[in-house]
Amino acid sequence: MDIKVIEKIKKLLALSESSNENEAQLSLLKAQELLVKHKLSLKEVKEFKVYNSEIKEKRSNVSFTKAKWKARLGRLIAENFGCYMYYKTHRTQTITFFGREEDIIICTIVLEYAIDSINSKVRRLRYQYSKDGYSTRGVENDYALGFISGLAEKFEEQKRKNQEWGLILVKDKEVTEAHENIKFKGSINTSTKFQGHDGAYYEGQDDGKQFSISDKIAEEQTEEQLGLA
């Protein structure tokens, strides 16, 4: 069994997360093509993950001090892509994923792309708010909270529409047991409250529902850039 082929199929399945049927089709069809070509089943792909893929932790490039919404976003992504999330602390909190190696790759791709999307939109909102004479204090926080809420809805919709896909991404027993054996020191307060920008929140919520990693695939145009080849 070719490990690289299995990993590519798993990534394609994970990246076909768009609730838009047309957007999801490209990744799903590619995964299906590889399954047929190599005479594999989805069950074999799932079982391969349990026995052959290394369980590890990996720090992302995402750190925060005041932007605590990043913690909520990271945890949501980890929960929906088969991983756990915690922090490495040294002046700032660095989001760290724990799970199967290929699932960590997906979590990292989705987290970094989501944050890029949030930051890009927040820059435009701040410009518009300033231009109109409104305070921008708390705009980033409220837009991000709305985005996370919309993304959570999107994930739940995906699970309802594609139960088999959800099974592939669930945490397996070995990952759960390995995580339970980690000894953590203390805890970090990552709670953050709505600051009152209704417009930013609801705009974020709409964008979260529409968020798709497929956009990144189309933008970069090559599988190599996502580590799929």
Rank of each mutant, 00 (worst) to 15 (best):
F81S: 04
K70H: 14
L28S: 15
Y87T: 08
E44F: 13
K58L: 09
E47C: 13
M85N: 05
F48P: 08
N52R: 08
L34I: 14
S63R: 02
S41M: 05
R59G: 11
K58P: 00
K37F: 14
E57L: 08
Y51G: 11
L35F: 14
K49I: 05
T65D: 08
L76W: 00
E79T: 03
E33P: 03
Y87K: 03
V62T: 07
L29C: 12
L28F: 09
N52V: 04
E44N: 09
N52H: 15
V62Y: 04
H38G: 08
K30A: 15
K46S: 07
I77K: 00
E57C: 06
N80K: 04
K46Y: 15
I55A: 01
K68A: 09
S63G: 04
E33A: 09
Y86L: 08
W69T: 12
N61T: 06
Y84M: 07
I77S: 01
A67N: 10
Y51R: 13
F48G: 11
F81D: 02
K56W: 04
A71G: 00
V36R: 04
S53I: 15
A71S: 10
Y51Q: 10
A71K: 00
L28N: 13
K68S: 01
T65H: 13
R72M: 09
V50T: 12
C83F: 07
K58R: 15
E79M: 08
V62H: 05
Y51E: 14
K68D: 02
R75I: 09
L28T: 14
L73A: 07
Y51V: 08
K70Y: 06
L34P: 02
I77G: 02
R59K: 12
H38R: 13
E44C: 13
V50A: 12
R72D: 01
K49L: 13
F64S: 05
I77C: 01
Q32F: 06
K30H: 12
K43H: 09
Y84W: 10
V50E: 14
T65M: 12
L28G: 07
A78L: 03
L42M: 06
I77L: 06
Y86P: 00
E47V: 07
K46N: 09
K56A: 07
K39H: 14
V45P: 02
I55P: 00
A67L: 07
V50K: 11
L29W: 13
R72F: 15
L76K: 06
K30S: 12
N52K: 07
K37Y: 12
Y87P: 04
L35A: 07
L34S: 06
L28R: 01
W69F: 13
W69D: 03
A31W: 10
F48W: 14
A71T: 02
I77W: 01
K46L: 13
K56S: 13
S41A: 11
V50W: 10
N80H: 15
E57A: 11
E57H: 05
G74F: 04
K56R: 14
K56I: 07
I55E: 09
K39M: 04
A31F: 10
W69I: 05
K58F: 07
L28V: 14
V45F: 09
L76E: 03
E47I: 14
S63A: 11
E54P: 01
V36G: 04
K70G: 01
G82N: 10
Y87H: 11
R75H: 13
E33W: 05
L29M: 15
L73M: 12
I55M: 14
